[in-house]
């Protein structure tokens, strides 16, 4: 670059024009992999507002669009509803580690109920095979695979979202795409999440999952009864998590993981209902929470009772 005093003449115009053409061609060629997804671009979806900003009419349009999307993608008639929390309700969960046998039925039932991608590592519930003598997660076996469970000298600890009262994931999110609902459930607006995965780094219970690719869902196994904030089919590149099956529990049913449990280890209910099973357990059993020291105040309790 010795030529600091520049005279731009007509001759250099041609040179510059050819550089410009080469540049534009280069950029276009570089972006060519996007051609296969250009068809998926939907301006209306792109401009969609945050869940809290949608009017009832807008929500109706959004739900219709999501149903049409699901039909187009999976060829299945999925019903997507916006199910609101019930008044005077706060959900909590308790799990009896004394009877859990580690069969992982809950994890698989959850996966199916919630249309979770079948790609590895996506299940919301992780069951840990633990050494007796402590609650040492570091020596927990995640990949245990014996002929029969339970194994002697082990106990089993399923972990899923603890729906914390002081959720570090909600604090982390830069765009408010995840928040705590009035009934205590921490939800994600899959249409608002930007996929930065800061919440995933923030969660001390490893309860959040990211769609590293387009979800893999076998058509015949899709659950067609879905809700906007829970189990509707998700797009690529966003976070998701356990919602205590809010599309079921907000309508008075149990979460899928509880229903399938063969040992009755799982207890679920409304903390504000003095006659609920969960209240009975919290009042009468010696319950504890996992990692109390991180201060997230979970609504998921464990207890041991044979």
């Amino acid at each position: 670059m010795s030529n600091d005093l520049v005279q731009i003449g007509r001759r250099s115009f041609l040179k510059r024009a050819s550089v410009a053409v080469a540049g534009v061609t280069g950029v276009m060629a570089s972006l060519s992999p996007l051609k296969e997804v250009v068809g998926d671009i939907d301006i209306e979806a792109w401009l969609q507002q945050h869940y809290h900003e949608l009017s009832p009419e807008q929500m109706k349009d959004v739900l219709a669009r999501l149903e049409a999307d699901a039909k187009r993608t999976y060829g299945v008639d999925v019903k997507v509803q916006d199910i609101k929390p019930r008044p005077d309700t706060k959900f909590a969960y308790a799990l009896n580690l004394g009877v859990c046998v580690g069969c992982r039925k809950c994890a698989y039932a959850c996966e199916k109920e919630n249309n979770v991608s079948r790609s590895p590592g996506m299940q919301y519930i992780r069951v840990l095979e633990m050494d007796k003598g402590g609650v040492n997660l570091e020596t927990a076996n995640h990949q245990y695979d014996p002929e029969t469970v339970p194994k002697p000298d082990k106990y089993y600890m399923p972990v899923q979202c603890h729906q914390c009262d002081n959720p570090s994931c909600v604090k982390a999110c830069p765009v408010n795409a995840t928040w705590k609902e009035p009934d205590g459930i921490v939800v994600v607006d899959y249409n608002w999440c930007i996929g930065c995965r800061y919440c995933e780094a923030a969660c001390p219970y490893w309860a959040r999952r990211f769609n590293f690719e387009k979800p893999i869902l076998p058509k015949e196994e899709i659950n067609t009864n879905t809700a906007y904030l829970s189990n509707r089919p998700r797009p690529q590149g966003v976070m998701e998590k356990c919602t205590f099956c809010l599309h079921r529990t907000r309508e008075g049913r149990y979460p899928a993981c509880l229903e399938v449990c063969p040992t009755g280890a799982r207890v679920f209910g409304n903390l504000y209902d003095p006659k609920s099973e969960i209240r009975y357990v919290l009042e009468n059993k010696r319950v504890f929470v996992l990692k109390e020291e991180v201060g997230t105040v979970p609504n998921f309790f464990y207890f041991f009772e044979a």
Partner: peptide, 18 residues
């Protein structure tokens, strides 16, 4: 562009090391 089309699965990241 390849990553945007196919997702972050084109990276070495996982739900464990996100």
């Amino acid at each position: 562009a390849v990553q945007m089309a196919q997702g972050l699965g084109t990276t070495g990241m996982t739900n464990q090391v996100s």
